[in-house]
Computed example of a mutant assay.
Amino acid sequence: MRCWLKVVVWCVIAGLAACSQNESRYAMKHDTGPDRHVDVTHIPDAVPKYEARTRAGNKNPYTVLGQTYYLIEDESDYKERGTASWYGKKFHGHKTSNGEVYDMYGMTAAHKTLPIPSYVRVTYLKNGRSVVVRVNDRGPFHQGRIIDLSYAAAQKLGIASAGTGPVEVEIVVPGDTPPPPLRPEDRAATHADGIYLQVGAFSSASNAKGLRDDVDSVLEARVFVSEFLAAKSLYRVRIGPLADMAEVSRVRGKLTGAGFSAGHIVKD
């Protein structure tokens, strides 16, 4: 009897501890910085380096608060102006989208559509200060904001006290060579450079996305839009990578059975 009671008590305590850990991230109603002033001037900027991109943090597409987001396939010319915000103590010590632990004193950031990891230079347009940060998280999901900076990055820029500020965000790549474009989330798979089926090409991004969504509804294989930049942009709807011709045949059978074109084979 005593052993049984000990087990019950232990399970209750363990359950309460688990609940406490799950809820602790949101124990703070409002996010904040450290309790006392911290000198962040000595914290170096992130140093761009080549890193393997895996599925971690790169689900594509993904949906948050009813909004679906599609990752940028080729970020090598990414540059954008908009509003930056920052996040701090409420999330400090908890996991980011790719499973790393968020450190508000690190030079990191969250972005909605850049592949993880990416490196960007963020310039505060009010004072001209800039920092380089490593994107390892998703967000911000407040309307009108384009990047969520760590507390340290925001403090170095001069944004922390205001909460938000106008910035320019530009991709930074190691050396002079842009990193290879991010392919759909299976880029890390052993057959990432496999066979693709192209089922459509459009001058309109919205038309391409419409076909992608329709095809995606009948397939288990990955369906994505690839933008081809030329005199005029061309948006190509592709399926893959597919491991071999047997898989190609299976996919084509499902396509034609659902009333779609069987597509044509392309190699990437």
Rank of each mutant, 00 (worst) to 15 (best):
E170M: 08
R250E: 13
I195N: 07
G139N: 12
V248I: 13
A246F: 00
A160C: 02
A160Y: 02
A189K: 14
A246S: 13
A246D: 14
R183A: 12
S206Y: 04
V199E: 04
L157G: 02
D244Q: 06
K209Y: 13
F228L: 12
A160I: 01
L234T: 15
I195T: 11
D176Y: 03
A230V: 01
P166V: 04
A201V: 14
R222A: 02
A230E: 11
G158K: 09
G158N: 05
L197W: 09
L157W: 09
T177E: 14
G163E: 07
Y151L: 03
T190I: 04
D213W: 00
D213N: 15
A205E: 15
G158I: 05
P178E: 12
H191Q: 05
G144L: 11
R129P: 01
H142P: 00
K232F: 01
F141K: 12
A208H: 09
N127V: 06
D148H: 11
G128P: 04
P140W: 12
G163D: 05
I159G: 02
G175K: 14
R145S: 10
H142W: 09
L242N: 06
G165Y: 03
P181L: 10
K232I: 01
E220I: 00
N127K: 10
S206E: 14
L234G: 01
V172I: 15
A243S: 11
G139A: 09
A201R: 13
H191P: 00
P180K: 15
V167N: 05
A208C: 09
G139I: 10
K232W: 01
V167S: 08
D176I: 00
T177N: 13
Q198L: 07
V218W: 03
V131P: 01
G240Y: 04
I239L: 08
N207M: 04
I147S: 08
D213L: 03
A153N: 06
L242Y: 03
V237C: 04
R236T: 04
G194S: 08
V251T: 13
D214S: 15
I239K: 06
L149M: 11
E168C: 01
D214R: 15
V131S: 03
T177W: 01
G144R: 11
V133W: 10
R134D: 06
F228T: 08
N207P: 00
T177Y: 01
G144M: 12
S204V: 05
A230I: 00
F228R: 14
I171T: 13
V169M: 14
A246M: 02
P140V: 11
I195S: 06
Y196T: 03
E247D: 07
H142M: 13
A188T: 03
A188Q: 10
K156I: 02
L197Q: 07
S130R: 08
V248E: 05
V251Q: 02
V135S: 07
A153Q: 07
V248G: 01
L182K: 15
D176T: 14
L157C: 03
D193C: 05
R212A: 09
